[in-house]
Amino acid sequence: MAEIKEKICDYLFNVSDSSALNLAKNIGLTKARDINAVLIDMERQGDVYRQGTTPPIWHLTDK
């Protein structure tokens, strides 16, 4: 899980924002549900936040 978090942070640092599906595909996974639990956990920790569009767009925080 730590490896996936690191990949998410690296990708969002370079791209600035992404949907869960696009993010999953760009870090080597196939479906948004493969990454949603990790994104929600990271959101609780304050590492990422989502804009409430459908589907949500994920961003890194300034943390």
Rank of each mutant, 00 (worst) to 15 (best):
R50E: 06
N36W: 10
R44I: 09
T54P: 02
L21E: 15
P55S: 08
L60S: 05
I40R: 12
D34E: 14
D34P: 04
S18N: 03
F13Q: 15
Y49W: 12
D62I: 02
A32L: 15
W58A: 06
N26M: 07
I57T: 12
S16I: 04
K7H: 03
D10W: 08
A37R: 12
A24P: 04
P56V: 11
I4L: 14
E6G: 09
C9H: 11
M42S: 03
K25A: 10
K5Y: 01
R44M: 09
T61L: 01
C9N: 14
L39R: 07
S16D: 07
I57R: 11
D62Y: 05
E3C: 01
N26T: 06
D10M: 05
A32D: 12
I27Y: 00
M1Y: 07
D41N: 04
I40P: 06
N22L: 05
D10P: 01
D62L: 05
D10E: 13
W58E: 09
Y49L: 09
Q51L: 11
I27E: 09
I27T: 06
D41R: 01
L21M: 13
M42L: 07
L23Y: 02
A20H: 03
L23E: 07
E6K: 13
T54S: 14
M1Q: 15
L23W: 02
I27H: 03
N26V: 13
K31E: 15
P56F: 00
V38L: 09
K63W: 09
R44L: 07
R50I: 01
A2I: 08
I35Q: 07
N14M: 10
I4K: 10
T54M: 09
N36S: 10
N14C: 10
L60E: 09
A24I: 03
F13I: 14
W58S: 09
V15R: 09
E43G: 04
I57A: 08
H59Y: 05
K5L: 03
R44T: 12
D34Y: 02
T30M: 10
Q51A: 10
L29P: 07
T54W: 04
P56I: 09
Q51P: 01
S16F: 01
V15S: 11
C9M: 13
K31Y: 14
K25I: 03
C9P: 09
Y11C: 09
V38I: 13
D41C: 01
G28T: 02
F13R: 15
G52Q: 10
G28H: 04
Y11S: 09
E6H: 03
S16M: 06
D41P: 06
L21Q: 14
D47V: 15
N36R: 06
I40E: 15
E3I: 05
K31F: 02
D62P: 07
P55A: 09
T30W: 07
K25M: 08
Q51C: 13
R50N: 06
K31A: 11
I4S: 08
L29D: 13
D10F: 02
I35D: 09
H59R: 15
A2P: 07
L29T: 10
I57F: 02
D34F: 01
I27S: 05
R44Q: 13
Q51N: 12
I35K: 08
D62R: 10
L21T: 14
Q45A: 14
K7F: 04
Q45Y: 02
I40N: 13
R50Y: 00
M1E: 15
D47G: 00
R50G: 05
N14P: 02
T61W: 01
A37M: 06
K31W: 02
L12S: 08
D62V: 07
D47W: 09
P55V: 08
F13Y: 14
K5C: 00
R50F: 03
G28F: 01
I35S: 07
L39A: 11
Y11N: 06
S18A: 12
W58R: 09
M42F: 00
Q51E: 14
A2T: 10
S16G: 15
T30A: 14
V48C: 06
V48R: 02
F13L: 15
D47I: 15
P56N: 00
L29N: 13
G28D: 10
G46T: 01
D47C: 11
S18E: 04
A20R: 03
F13C: 14
L60Q: 01
W58K: 08
A2V: 09
N26A: 14
L29W: 02
L39C: 04
P56R: 02
A37H: 13
I27M: 07
W58N: 08
D62N: 05
V15L: 03
L23K: 04
K63P: 07
T61I: 01
K25T: 08
K25W: 01
D47K: 13
G46L: 00
L39Y: 02
P55T: 09
T30V: 10
T54K: 12
I57W: 05
S16R: 14
I8P: 05
I27G: 03
A24R: 03
I35V: 12
L29R: 07
V38M: 04
A24D: 01
R44P: 04
G52N: 12
N22G: 08
L21F: 10
N36E: 15
E3A: 07
I8S: 08
K7G: 01
Y11M: 06
C9R: 15
L29A: 11
L23S: 06
Y49R: 13
E6T: 07
